[in-house]
Amino acid sequence: MSEVFRSGTEERGDILIQIEPLTNQPFAACENQIEVRSRYESLFGEHLRRLVDRLIAESGLKGYRIFASDSGAWDYTIKARFESCLRALNRSNT
């Protein structure tokens, strides 16, 4: 079973981010599967997706499922939670 790396919560003002390796799927090594949800979809959904896409691109992640559930997090929280997940993932890969 693949390991899931998690950071954050679904409390107000926070965002829950989960990253897990894609396995047994075609093109798993070069594609990501991204799912982003927000309680404030109509207001910030587009901004949130752009930010998550940028963070993923900067991280160089490939072959992962990335799930984000936003409860009104500000950008600094999104960046911090994403970085926490990445650090956990990197620790596990070394």
Partner: peptide, 14 residues
């Protein structure tokens, strides 16, 4: 501890 430290560091820049 680790994720709170990162969160605080980012928050301090805001």
């Amino acid at each position: 501890k680790a994720e709170s430290r990162l969160l605080l560091k980012q928050a301090l820049k805001e």
